[in-house]
Design a protein around this nucleic acid. Sequence first.
DNA 1: GAGAAGCTATTCGGTTAGCGCATAGATACA
DNA 2: TGTATCTATGCGCTAACCGAATAGCTTCTC
Lengths: 285, 285
Amino acid sequence: MNISQLKVLVTIDQCGSFSDAALVLEMSQSAVSRAIASLENELQVPLLVRGRLGAKLTPIGERVVKHANKILDLRESIEYEVNLEKSLYNSRLRIASFRSAATHLLPSKIAQFQRSYPRVEVSLDEFDPAGVEQALRGGDADLGLLPLPRSEDFTTWEIMRDEYVVLLPKGNDSTPQSITWGELSSCSFILLNYAECTTAVREHWSRWQQPLKVAYNVKEDSTIVSMVAQGLGAAILPKLAAMPIPETVQSYSVPVPLERVIGVAILANIPPSPAVTRFLDVMKA
Amino acid sequence: MNISQLKVLVTIDQCGSFSDAALVLEMSQSAVSRAIASLENELQVPLLVRGRLGAKLTPIGERVVKHANKILDLRESIEYEVNLEKSLYNSRLRIASFRSAATHLLPSKIAQFQRSYPRVEVSLDEFDPAGVEQALRGGDADLGLLPLPRSEDFTTWEIMRDEYVVLLPKGNDSTPQSITWGELSSCSFILLNYAECTTAVREHWSRWQQPLKVAYNVKEDSTIVSMVAQGLGAAILPKLAAMPIPETVQSYSVPVPLERVIGVAILANIPPSPAVTRFLDVMKA
DNA sequence: GAGAAGCTATTCGGTTAGCGCATAGATACA
DNA sequence: TGTATCTATGCGCTAACCGAATAGCTTCTC
């Protein structure tokens, strides 16, 4: 049983005769006749009744055609998927991300993606979250990593949750595992100088009616960690932004845990390219 | 793209290597290699990554295999259906039916069935309804026509509804279209001598609190019609049993219509043979 | 009832595709 | 560096498929 034989059978059903099917299939009538003859011979069952005005399916022929049509559809599905795959060759994938995700999350994912799709040219640009949004909106990036939620202009998928931690210089004597609001109330903090970050912290503190003394607003998270190590204050940072945490700095969960959601986002109003779809598959897995 | 190429691809996926797949498929390793090579060449896409310890699907290969498996399943479905069809060759179909269905309903259906399945030997036996049940239970018939409902021992399908009619000799002067209980109350009736039939009539009459004078119980419905034609009384019969109604006899609906359901039945506890299934398809259509 | 017109089946010769066998090439491991 | 274990390939053969031409069948027409 060949796919081409099934194609012939289906075409005869549609055309009503061997000869018309031959024209449609752009092959000779004899080839059509023999395709059916060999199929019928293999199955040992008559599939068509030949008459004056062409050919008509037998009842078993109808059943066979029903399945044959599905087979032909599946063959087209295969070709469609393959063409999608080929359209991905020599294409590019421009990722925009905020720093901590770009540093700690993306490299392994990109490597995994490239192992499967070596012919996609991947580029990665770092911005703050607002910059990532702007890159997506401006068409300068195909896909972005962002803290969620975002506006409805973006379609997003959650990738991980990132807990905020308090960083303190490590005292030599004791390294307690937890810290209380009381102990925190006496600290003066270094915050990350991104609106989304500081707002989340300030709102959390005020929700639990805690005083928040802010001594510095710093843009580079590695700078913040160094400042903590040097004893210039405590810090409140998402864990991913704090990494790598040096030996001399101790991290604690916030007394009431606070976390941010990290996700991947694309513009909602433009259909994702094949490369984007495949990269999303890798990120979601 | 061949079904056999897809079969090879799927088998390699299951076996993990070209050479093992060759053993399973009982073909040479070179044939396996070239089947895949030509498939990849046709699709212009790598489906397998060849490594030290065999072969593994590429991402697009996985997608192709998913569809290929469905194609192979469909091919098996075709073979299954064809074998079912062949098992029907030189088989027989023994139908049991009561007289009126056998005369007026079955011939056209059997002819239609035989046009599609000339190689099935069809036989038809006439019984009264109790005899049809007995033939089915005794394994002497594969399928029966019966008034419904039946006991749960049978699986049944309704085929048609058959209205009871009152037959009277046609008066030359007037042929009214309807008849009243009052007019009927003065008649003496000839009934069909089958329990199921007379019971239905008697119950209907008593439900509507009408007197029923029975002059004769006759077994042959054609005899009843002749007796009416000869003026020996009125008759109450299912329309199908009364046919053909001669010119000299007038038929009326019962003042409150009464009908019987005619259906086809098989034994519920044995799976129907392919021939029975196909004949049921014809009857249901 | 002879012929035309519509169809499918078959014959013929040439080409292609698929097969097994044997062997070459690649790669990891001892 | 040799060995074991894969896949790829060259070679000769066979079977399958193709188009062109033609035969054969059925129905309709005159």
